[in-house]
């Protein structure tokens, strides 16, 4: 039996609720750190940044599920829905910190969304995730039918790209980190593109 097969058997014993449980913890932990001085002297920006990064990391992991299975045979498909929803949860927390702790003034929120390209792109990414979260249950899959459901869920690619571009647009100068996220997401999307072309040929 191959390593991938053995891994898959082991993974089948991992309950899906564990992904939700473990996934739910980091924002709570960061909030605790922020409130007790563990995030440095500017905890609002630190918390916002940490949650945004968590979201991007989970997004990259979710996008990696399909290529991982194709390239190695290891299947995390069972957990993908949970991973996607945890991504949505992190980004929702990120947005909430921005709204409630960072911007504060409701009048400025709309102005920021319209005037600041990095916020416009970030909000577009979040908006693209809403229909994904709403249709993440079995009933929605049945109602839409698998083909339409799958087409709708290509919005994931839009959200992922928006997230990476949002990060790149908000930093000053050219630090490495946002470029690495963008490269990872572009790479994971390119793997799919190549396959689709290959399938047609």
């Amino acid at each position: 039996m191959s390593l991938a097969q053995r891994l898959n058997i082991a993974l089948r014993r991992v309950p899906i609720w564990l992904v939700y449980l473990v996934g739910a913890l980091p924002p709570v932990w960061y909030l605790y750190l922020g409130a007790t001085g563990g995030l440095g002297v500017e905890p609002i920006a630190a918390l916002e940044h940490a949650l945004g990064l968590l979201g991007l990391q989970m997004m990259v992991a979710t996008l990696a599920v399909t290529p991982l299975r194709r390239l190695t045979g290891v299947s995390l498909l069972r957990f993908r829905r949970a991973m996607g929803l945890v991504t949505f949860y992190y980004i929702s927390c990120h947005l909430l910190v921005w709204l409630v702790l960072d911007v504060q003034a409701p009048a400025r929120i709309w102005a920021d969304i319209v005037e600041r390209p990095y916020i416009t792109v970030g909000m577009a990414g979040f908006a693209a995730m809403i229909p994904l979260a709403v249709t993440s249950n079995d009933r929605a899959v049945r109602k839409l039918g698998p083909r339409r459901w799958a087409r709708l869920h290509r919005l994931t690619y839009v959200a992922a790209l928006a997230g990476a571009v949002h990060f790149l647009l908000l930093v000053r100068a050219w630090p490495l980190e946002p470029l690495l996220y963008l490269a990872a997401i572009l790479g994971l999307l390119a793997l799919r593109l190549g396959r689709r072309r290959g399938a047609r040929a």
């Binding site: 922020g34 409130a35 002297v41 500017e42 905890p43 609002i44 918390l47 702790l101 504060q104 003034a105 400025r108 102005a111 920021d112 005037e115 600041r116 390209p117 990095y118 647009l169 908000l170």
Partner: peptide
């Protein structure tokens, strides 16, 4: 005069913790 990426109308004084206001 706003920076294209940040409004310059308000600022956050460092040291006010998690619920610091602008």
């Amino acid at each position: 005069v706003d920076h294209p990426r940040w409004s310059q109308a308000t600022e956050r004084r460092i040291g006010g913790g998690l619920f610091n206001s602008r």
